[in-house]
């Protein structure tokens, strides 16, 4: 546990050195959201109808893009190989690394999402549910995506491959996340999809690190 906090703090300190890195996914999120009214027309009712899906897809792609460099530096300077020498500490490393990533890149997305969703005319009542669904969903996205990142670490051209490997597993998260927001706008309770999202997040957090550790071992050997 002490190790976990130390790795987490180290990751956050490293991020503090590169002060603008955490902004990148946010800017991507905001810019792509800006593109939708330009392509679909600025009509309030049109945008409001598709807003839950648009916000969710954009947040999902921003998360996927942010994940790509997750282990790159640690592979380059050889840190990862040292972590791979010991299975229990490799798991702790994976947990800390992913937690730090989520805090740095996904939490800001969750916080800014109501603003962007509101700009797409999503009804006010659904904003809280949107945040909650993204909060739970992004945890599942990061932990699931990390498996794909770990497997493709060390490959030269991995962006498309990463998307090909990871997007199929993102489908349930997207379905439940977007439908939670969708049914709230229809005035119904979103409890069902939110519970399912929470279940997916718990499942991913519990099981994915084992796959991540295994994949990291494979790609460094």
């Amino acid at each position: 546990m002490i190790l976990f906090w130390r790795v987490l703090k180290q990751q956050l300190d490293l991020a503090y050195e590169h002060k603008t890195a955490w902004l990148n996914p946010l800017l991507f999120f905001a810019l792509v959201t800006l593109l939708f009214p330009l392509a679909l027309g600025a009509s309030t009712s049109n945008l409001a109808a598709v807003a839950p899906g648009l916000v969710w897809i954009t947040a999902l792609l921003a998360t996927l893009l942010s994940l790509e460099t997750l282990f790159r530096d640690d592979v380059a300077d050889g840190t990862l190989e040292l972590w791979c020498a010991n299975q229990p500490s490799l798991l702790v490393y994976a947990y800390a690394k992913l937690s730090a990533h989520w805090l740095l890149y996904c939490l800001p997305l969750v916080l800014i999402s109501p603003l962007l969703a509101y700009s797409l005319h999503l009804p006010m009542v659904a904003l809280a549910v949107l945040m909650l669904s993204l909060l739970l969903g992004s945890i599942a996205l990061v932990w699931l995506g990390a498996i794909g990142v770990a497997i493709t670490t060390g490959l030269k051209y991995n962006s498309f491959l990463l998307a090909l490997l990871v997007l199929p597993f993102y489908v349930p998260v997207l379905i439940f996340g977007a439908s939670a927001v969708e049914i709230t706008t229809q005035g119904l309770s979103a409890a069902g999809p939110l519970y399912l999202l929470a279940a997916l997040a718990v499942l991913a957090v519990t099981l994915a690190p084992f796959a991540v550790a295994k994949a990291l071992k494979l790609s460094t050997s």
């Binding site: 498996i147 497997i151 493709t152 490959l155 051209y157 991995n158 491959l161 090909l164 490997l165 997007l167 199929p168 597993f169 796959a211 295994k214 994949a215 494979l218 790609s219 050997s221």
Partner: peptide
Amino acid sequence: FIYIGIFVLYDAIEDKRQAGKAVSLMTLV
């Protein structure tokens, strides 16, 4: 797409022993 992902991944990793294991892991996931 999962099937395609599996054999594209196998193709992308040059060391075939490593590729076989990576693909196995991906299959189980």
